[in-house]
Nucleic acid binder design. Structure first.
Lengths: 248, 248
DNA sequence: CGGGGGGTTGATCTCCTTCAATCAACGTGG
DNA sequence: CCACGTTGATTGAAGGAGATCAACCCCCCG
């Protein structure tokens, strides 16, 4: 559980796998140069804490590979995940060093970090960065609000279906694959983390997955690789209107 | 239920009641001049729709007075509020005309509107505005995530206590009052809207309020004015840690 | 006086939680 | 190489918080 930080190699931004979607996606070559100067990489193992709630952090950064959760734990142990961070997602808020949530690597993960002070100056002086930051923040807000609907009003079954649809969609856009008919993706979450994401218990998660499997809506290879024989058919179980994605 | 739009008088920005907290709070006099040129006021009656989900909107704007909800309704009628808009809060997203949520006035309400196209140009060219927009969006994201914790993990009792604490806090900061000991505020929501905010039924809301009243934690004058004899005592029922607000 | 919107309260039901047993996969040390 | 512990997952049985269905109240207004 101790945070492990191996600094690792220093690839060129221009060759970066998340170049097209991350905080730097609008930057031109000059601006990338500036970012190169203040960036460094850190890698984490599955289970490592990246930031603890209340910590003062001296960096912000982008997830390059792997998955992390943003979570909040109550004094009595109840826990709610409030964000799922995947490649190209951004960690940290300019102007506030104190972390309001726990950030945890749930798979092995590589983070492209920027030192806080110089990055904040860069945000001020570089519209391509501040513009992208606003855009990404607005998108995160939409995701959070979708998630509120899920937490407040969906049934356990709809919650699981929604999660799978979301993960399949995310995996497809990152991998540039087609999103209909049969879709396969990796499940980076344990049953417990899934439960903490959706406001359920891990037993309920397990039961609902079993039910979907019995009905042939999902097929498991091991407990972590998921195949949806019919994407649209599962989407119909998620409780979302079809028009939903059109607006997002 | 029909949207009513009376255009009303055109007060000076410099004398505006939300001058200190709204999207324009960082603007200097010159910048206010620019905003004056593209702004106009609209007023709505309690119950009016301001925007329907899926609508294309030609304006963005700030709530000047009154309260509105941001909500999402599922095909079968289940509804979840995903935001509560009070004076100084902003409606609309630059760069996206299609509304992803229903916006509804739940009290009489006055909106300071900006025409979309000129406002978007102003955002581009005015760091004082884009900076403030980013700041407000990040704050909204924090609120949404707090709310996710509430929806996913809190009990009905904790949900009601949290809502009252939030409304009392908001009322106090807007009114510039003290926040401890005895606090009084207006409840702009019906039981049904409260239920849709917290992922409950209106019956459960009513029962929990009754329980808090029996225990003397809240006192009602009519069904819409609330007095908390002891703010801290109710806060202790909300399930939040004390350190919470320190980070927000 | 009738009617409708908002609110409260009661009785019953149900979906999800809680508690608990079991299992499979994996690593570790004797 | 096998006993043992651990971690993640599945499944069952019992219980409970909140939903559902329904009656009734209050107040305002036509």
């Amino acid at each position: 559980m101790i945070t492990q930080l191996h600094e690792i190699a220093h690839p060129q931004c221009s060759a970066c796998q998340i170049r097209e979607r991350a905080i730097c996606s609008r930057c031109d070559d000059d601006e990338l140069q500036m970012l190169e100067k203040i960036k460094y990489y850190r890698s984490f193992s599955a289970g490592d804490a990246i930031v603890w709630r209340g910590d003062s952090t001296d960096f912000l950064g982008s997830v390059v590979s792997g998955t992390a959760t943003l979570g909040h734990t109550m004094k009595d142990g109840r826990r709610q995940m409030v964000g799922l961070l995947q490649p190209s997602d951004f960690i940290g808020r300019p102007g506030r060093a104190l972390a309001p949530y726990d950030v945890t690597a749930i798979t092995d993960l590589v983070l492209c970090c920027f030192q806080r002070a110089p990055f904040e100056r860069l945000v001020e002086s570089t519209p391509h960065i501040s513009r992208r930051l606003l855009e990404m923040t607005l998108d995160e807000l939409d995701v959070a609000r979708q998630w509120m609907l899920l937490l407040g009003r969906k049934t356990a079954r709809e919650k699981i279906a929604s999660l799978f649809i979301m993960l399949a969609t995310r995996a497809a856009t990152l991998g540039g694959k087609e999103l209909s008919g049969q879709v396969t993706f990796d499940l980076p979450l344990t049953r417990e983390v899934m439960a903490d994401c959706m406001g359920l218990t891990l037993e309920t998660v397990s039961r609902q997955i079993s039910a979907l499997r019995r009905e042939g809506l999902v097929v498991l290879a091991g407990s972590r690789q998921i195949t949806l024989p019919d994407f649209e058919m599962l989407a119909a179980e998620s409780g979302d209107d079809d028009e939903n994605e059109a607006l997002a």
